[in-house]
Design a protein around this nucleic acid. Structure first.
Lengths: 199, 199
DNA sequence: TTTTACCTACCTTCTGGTAGGATGGCAGTC
DNA sequence: GACTGCCATCCTACCAGAAGGTAGGTAAAA
């Protein structure tokens, strides 16, 4: 399909990494202009306002996530393996510092001061991620592969929360390894196999 | 001790709630001035710069947290109950919307763009909270009350991460209940008693 | 008399955003 | 092919307001 002028993509990519670094109020059009090598005013041609830019960015991020989840469903049917792929994705992002934070997790922390159009997109991401994780938990439980200590929904929320918290800790300690330290046992615990080890 | 002019405390309290809402770059001296009922310039008398203000705020927050942990140690010796008190504190804060986010968790997400003096305080909070939680995990395991699936340290980090992530989710869903939904089972799982329920 | 707490007035820099012009590619038409 | 209009892209030059911060003053408490 049309390989449209990459400038707008460059702007989005740049905005993304700037948001990952400091959130919605942590960057300006001038920052993007510097990195992309374009004038501040030119950005307004592609994205009339900052809200437009970030809303587009988050919407695209949601599409990518949705596509990612569909892709996992397509190529891996084992629920535990699916969660491992998800956690592994972020572990890699954090390890190579390419995008060491989910922009929606970051923006969610600023929700009260976020333009509401952006807030809606962010909340939608949480719902769709949670819905997918819930379905994975359900399937894992149905197939007798997971032992859930509460409802699939609660288990999914706990999983998501832990992953988000682990991103935060990796940042706070400035240590990518902490993400794996937290998410590794999280995955192991879900697998029934862990029950075979008795105290 | 001297009940110093409450203005400076008002400023700190106001800054705190503004940071809880939108992070370091989400508020300005003008915002504080409006709420406290003082002129913008007067704030500089109490806190010469924004960095001073936020560093002081986080330092005081750390002291409070430290005092809180000491207090828990003093009045409750049961490790599980200690964790319950900690989680319950935040559950209450989120439920009544008084301070529905840990400022250090929020600021940690902005660490890359935070003034480094502030960043140091934030990181210190993570370390001291983690250290306390680790000691609680150790004690719980030693007394045969917790069954840990990994090292006390890793279990403490996972606990902290989940609590932070649960704050985020409560905000994203705009639903205080989700915090309890996530942290409740987290506490139950730690208790040995849960092992008595066999599939 | 010094200090504390606050004020008005002002400064510089950055903010998101606008107006209007230059360039250049790409239809359609002659 | 040359001419034309058009639209996309990017530019310079602005703007109003908000940002953090300073200078210097007043009034009252210590």
């Amino acid at each position: 399909m049309s390989n449209l002028s990459t400038t707008s993509d460059d702007i989005l990519a740049c905005a993304r990494s700037l948001i990952v670094a400091g959130g919605y109020n942590g960057f300006s059009y001038a920052d993007i202009a510097d990195v992309v090598g374009i004038r501040k005013a030119s950005i307004h041609h592609h994205f009339p306002s900052k809200v437009d830019l970030v809303r587009t960015l988050v919407a695209r991020y949601r599409e990518e996530t949705e596509a990612g989840m569909a892709n996992v469903e397509l190529h891996e049917s084992d629920p535990l393996e699916q969660l491992r792929i998800y956690a592994g994705y972020w572990e890699a992002c954090i390890a190579n510092a390419s995008a060491p934070f989910c922009i929606c997790a970051l923006l969610a922390s600023e929700l009260p001061v976020l333009p509401k159009e952006v807030g809606l997109e962010v909340r939608a991401h949480f719902r769709s991620l949670s819905a997918w994780l819930t379905s994975v938990m359900e399937r894992g439980a149905r197939h007798g592969q997971f032992r859930l200590m509460s409802t699939p929904r609660a288990e999914a929320e706990a999983f998501m929360a832990t992953v988000h918290g682990a991103m935060l800790s990796a940042r706070a300690y400035d240590d990518p390894k902490i993400f794996g330290v937290v998410t590794g046992p999280l995955l192991e615990r879900l697998a029934l196999r862990s029950l075979q080890i008795r105290p």
